[in-house]
Amino acid sequence: MKVNEIVIPLEAEVVVDGNMSEQTLKGGYSGDLLSDCIANAGEGSVWVTIHSHPNIVAVAVLVGILCIVITNFQEIDPQTVEKARKERVTLLRTPLTSYQAVAVLAGRGIPGTKKHV
């Protein structure tokens, strides 16, 4: 599934389009501990999180996460937006909770993947 196909189901606002129509999702990860995300999320993932500070983009780049879904309609730091643009990471913002967002993504057939360090 391409990243642009999850925008409407997530009722999301596209904050940064990191070339969504070309980004193919291989799996998903959800969590708010950065050390857990970097160790367990896989390349080509969508990441569902409550965080919106710039370091989430650093983590995404290192793991190869294509799209970050920021839940609960959190305010997003302008530095996060700038960094995501530069790194071509897609940023979506949804009013859904993290659980609701994961349920939507899982319902669309995006598997939960787990890497191990």
């Binding site: 708010d32 501990l33 950065l34 050390s35 857990d36 995300c37 970097i38 160790a39 999180t49 965080h51 500070h53 370091n55 989430i56 360090v117």
Partner: peptide
């Protein structure tokens, strides 16, 4: 609050 401080960093480094 930013999602750091899980206490996994050094153990991740050791595993990697």
């Amino acid at each position: 609050e930013m999602g750091f401080g899980a206490g996994y960093g050094l153990s991740n480094m050791k595993k990697c």
